[in-house]
Nucleic acid binder design. Structure first.
Lengths: 199, 199
DNA sequence: CCTACCGATCGGTAGG
DNA sequence: CCTACCGATCGGTAGG
């Protein structure tokens, strides 16, 4: 019986959570389809069939991973917003700082590539979770700034979508020559968003 | 021998181009991994093995499809920009109108999900093609507006990335409740980009 | 462009 | 959590 696990990590670190952690890392970087149950099992250090002791299917595992991911972002975003509760600019900076502190997530790829592989029920489930955990929080930031009379009349939904798509494209823009830090990109993006490009 | 092809379409419409068209449609909507050679063959109306008469592998087919797609965008973007050569605002509107006139493409998903499945050589090849066909054209729009003193000093690269990510997120934003037309979203986006959100 | 076929790999099950 | 295994499906080849 081989028992020399490569990373014992913590004493009471349940198998289920180890599976969730490794699966999340793999799904996040390569997407649902490109990750196999054998990949995940290999990273965890168990046999592929043993994954079915924790989760009934690959799809169920993906749903559990994604719901946990969304919930973590909901908490992190809420804290980021609450700590700087004065004006829109500082709220956007706090929000951006949260996203930069986390491994990048690719919502657009998830919607476009991963979602179509799931059952209709799980698609609605994850869509709603995203809506409530992430999108709605960002939308409210803009809606409240608008109520305070801080910004001009614009659909908060559009601004939330714009802001999220910009956050998502940072790792992409960042690979090009003359790469700058994520913080600098965010500063420039928020500056453009608030003040515009006009002289 | 069954010979009742469902869509004869045009007389001299070569098999190779039929393959390219159907493959592009499938790759565009579902991504590289989720599309099988059998899917493509089925849409074309031939056997899966026959695809290898036209293309030596699935990867080669994907590269050919994507290069053709990029080249079409390069031409379309160039024409859009040239016809409205005065100010930044009209150039952005013409550019956005071109993207809206085409089936949506998901660059971020391509980079994140499709690219890692290809050989290193083909990754650089497609990355360079994207760079020269699409990204550089958008970048120049901003760079030139900056040289004309039309907008304040900002990295044109960042603005190009921002603009493209916004274009890409339109079909996503558009699915939410209270969906509005792509044109309206684009108008609001460009307005924010140029004038900012401040009152 | 076809028929026939192959080795590899996938998600998942049986039974312990 | 394991071993052993299965049916389905994948990209690709041989030979015409």
């Amino acid at each position: 019986m081989p028992d020399d696990r490569s990373s014992p990590k913590e004493v009471s670190y349940s198998g289920r959570n180890r599976v969730l952690d490794e699966a999340e890392r793999l799904f996040r970087t390569r997407g649902y389809n490109a990750v196999t149950m054998r990949d995940i099992a290999c990273e965890v250090g168990i046999r592929q069939a043993s994954l079915y002791y924790h989760f009934s299917s690959k799809e169920q595992l993906f749903v559990a991973v994604t719901e946990r991911l969304f919930e973590r972002h909901r908490i992190g975003l809420q804290q980021a917003i609450d700590q700087d509760c004065d004006d829109l600019r500082s709220q956007l900076h706090a929000t951006a700082a949260w996203f930069l502190s986390q491994p990048p997530i690719y919502f657009l790829s998830m919607v476009h590539t991963d979602m179509p592989c799931l059952s209709e029920e799980n698609v609605t489930r994850l869509s709603n979770a995203f809506e409530k955990s992430i999108f709605e929080l960002i939308r409210q930031i803009f809606a409240q700034a608008q109520e305070r009379g801080e910004i001009r009349n614009t659909r908060p939904q559009l601004l939330a979508g714009l802001f999220l798509s910009v956050m998502e494209s940072i790792p992409f823009v960042n690979t090009r020559p003359g790469a700058v830090s994520g913080e600098m990109i965010v500063n420039e993006m928020i500056s453009v968003l608030l003040d515009g490009l006009k002289l």
